[in-house]
Design a protein around this nucleic acid. Structure first.
Lengths: 114, 114
DNA sequence: CTGATCTACAACCATTTGGTTGTACGTTAT
DNA sequence: ATAACGTACAACCAAATGGTTGTAGATCAG
């Protein structure tokens, strides 16, 4: 997924990926340390396959990346993905800023007919 | 929903709510101007009920609020909700910062036995 | 009063999601 | 070589999601 110039589908995937507590926890973990998929699976009360699916969702969303090492698959955090989400949120904050500015303009407007 | 002190369910709702392009568009619109539910519904190629559901999802996530005015229900953006998401993202960025600091520490560590 | 408008909500449907178990295959260790 | 480990993937299931239509209650306009 291209993380700059995000299309709707990419944005959907990013937010969707973060809308699950297990996946958010995985993101935290793999940001601070290295984990294999089975290393991650050991942390949660669910099957290996379930964790594997969560990692796949995060990977499609560009929030983590996998790298094969021997028979293991090492999962690492992908900072670009997170930055994309952050930039998106910044855009929404910017819209609020515009709104505040617009309201200020209206209040500062020269009263003409009253 | 309490927007400070967010529990997992609240966070889930926030990200889930933002994981749909129609809902993201609604958030933008109602931030800049006032819209009734049917006013919003007129903007999209889907039924009134569908838009009503989208607004309900955003409301549960604390991203918008409704206010009854006559027979209309006015939808407005709720800045607190957005700020919650932003704070969450900031936490993840902070984790990355910690990671970077930790790596820097390791590199700066006094070599003792080589 | 009557009709049009706005909203709410239930019932239904197809698809997606988050989980399971089972099977197969490459890699490591004994 | 064989067993154990790590992964991938298919098939299945229940619940949630995103949409529909239909019905009903308020409110506003003529």
């Amino acid at each position: 997924m291209v993380v700059d110039q995000l299309d709707d589908t990419g944005i959907d995937r990013l937010f969707q990926a973060l809308a699950d507590p297990t996946r958010r926890d995985i993101v935290r973990r793999v940001t601070l340390g290295e984990y294999s998929v089975s290393g991650l699976a050991a942390l949660y009360a669910m099957s290996f396959a379930a964790v594997q699916k969560h990692v796949a969702v995060l990977e499609r969303a560009s929030l983590v990346s996998k790298e094969k090492r021997g028979r293991e698959q090492i999962v690492r955090g992908n900072h670009e993905g997170l930055q994309s989400v952050r930039r998106l949120l910044d855009e929404y904050e910017e819209i609020w800023r515009q709104r505040a500015a617009r309201i200020a303009d209206i209040l500062a407007e020269e009263p003409k007919n009253n």
